[in-house]
Amino acid sequence: MVTLPFIKNSLISIDIGFRNIKIVEVEVGKNNEIFIKNFGIASTPKGSIKNGAIKDVKSVTNEIKKVMNEINVKTKNAKIVMSGTNIISRIFLIDHIPGQDLSVAVRNTISQNMPIDMDAHQIDYKVLQELKENGSSKLKVFVTAVLKSIIQSYIDILIELGLKPISVDIPANSTAKFFNRDIMVNENETWFKKKKYSKLSQNTFAVIDFGSETTIVNILRDRVLEFNKVILRGSSNIDEAIAAKLYKKLDESERLKKIHGMELPETNVSEEQEIIYQCIKGVIDDIAKQIYQCFEFYEKRCYGDKVGKIYIIGGGSLLKGLRDYLEDVFTVPVYPVSLLSIEGIEINQGLDSERLNYLINSVGITL
């Protein structure tokens, strides 16, 4: 075991997704340096999550316990990240009146514009900026709302595991924490691309998390999260499309997806290859259309700037040809990002670095 001099806090973080549960043990330094001691990935029991809430605490905790034993976790302090499907986020413009109680103004705005039970939800907000509209001073406020019962279902997991709950967080916050740091990416751009992209804003960018069941769109301006949307389509939909067309089992369809991706050979294309390509492209086209709608909504309804570049994360971002496809569709540079692309991350020797792309949310909540 490597021991680093800056270490002060040990944490375990747990990210429960629809397909996989990611468990990471980290040590966090005084300047938020992160040392990944160990990690494990388990399959999420089928039917254990519904609408973002944990419905079968026992089966989930049993899977987590197995992994914790396998990787020999000793830490008790724990953070957990929620599934993103039942997290509501909105941006509102609120009249800026000197001396007003902003929390009351936010709650009044939510009650008038969001069809939710205010008492049943945990509501958090962040002021993004002050601006003028028709001569009046306004505050642009980013609001998130989550059912308290869903938050409690995640706390129950930690208690059942005998861990000390430190926080329950959402994927968007994890992403925002990481992308406040310097990101080391391979530019790998031609002179033509650099010229074409040179006039785009570098202060506004998207981080797109390609997951199994969902695709999460985050937009940050000046490294501050200003937009978040969960698209209910993910890489598992590709597996299902291939399985339906080729009469294959899902695990075989997933294998074919990984082999072929969005790249067709120039010659001697078989009928099966063509079908696989069309299945993948059909799902990705649908996701890209919804991403584009998110960008438009952010610009027109959230007083945002045009997105100048895209970072892609998550297991689905490893799909062959996805980066080139997204660059062609959105005409902005696209950068795949792994944990080791992010400043201040170190990993214990001997760990499988190829699987780190699945861990950005689970590591990000430790900050």
Results as ranks from 00 to 15, higher is better:
residue 79 K to D: 06
residue 94 I to H: 08
residue 14 I to A: 04
residue 29 G to S: 14
residue 65 K to R: 15
residue 83 S to A: 07
residue 90 R to Y: 03
residue 62 N to M: 05
residue 127 V to K: 03
residue 82 M to G: 10
residue 123 I to M: 10
residue 81 V to R: 01
residue 29 G to F: 01
residue 60 V to R: 02
residue 32 N to M: 05
residue 57 V to G: 04
residue 44 T to Q: 08
residue 42 A to M: 12
residue 122 Q to T: 11
residue 100 Q to F: 05
residue 80 I to M: 09
residue 125 Y to K: 07
residue 102 L to H: 05
residue 127 V to H: 03
residue 75 T to W: 09
residue 82 M to W: 15
residue 93 L to C: 11
residue 50 K to R: 15
residue 115 P to S: 06
residue 111 S to N: 11
residue 46 K to S: 13
residue 80 I to V: 09
residue 46 K to L: 12
residue 30 K to T: 11
residue 48 S to K: 06
residue 55 K to S: 14
residue 84 G to A: 15
residue 77 N to W: 07
residue 46 K to W: 01
residue 31 N to T: 14
residue 92 F to E: 09
residue 67 V to G: 04
residue 35 F to D: 04
residue 103 S to E: 06
residue 14 I to W: 03
residue 125 Y to T: 03
residue 18 F to E: 15
residue 85 T to Y: 02
residue 104 V to P: 01
residue 70 E to P: 01
residue 28 V to E: 09
residue 53 A to N: 15
residue 96 H to D: 15
residue 79 K to S: 02
residue 63 E to I: 11
residue 112 Q to E: 12
residue 123 I to C: 05
residue 31 N to S: 11
residue 40 G to Y: 03
residue 88 I to Q: 00
residue 112 Q to T: 09
residue 57 V to A: 07
residue 90 R to L: 02
residue 47 G to H: 05
residue 94 I to A: 00
residue 16 I to F: 13
residue 59 S to M: 13
residue 34 I to E: 11
residue 68 M to H: 04
residue 60 V to D: 06
residue 28 V to W: 07
residue 52 G to I: 10
residue 92 F to S: 03
residue 91 I to K: 00
residue 127 V to N: 01
residue 93 L to R: 11
residue 87 I to K: 02
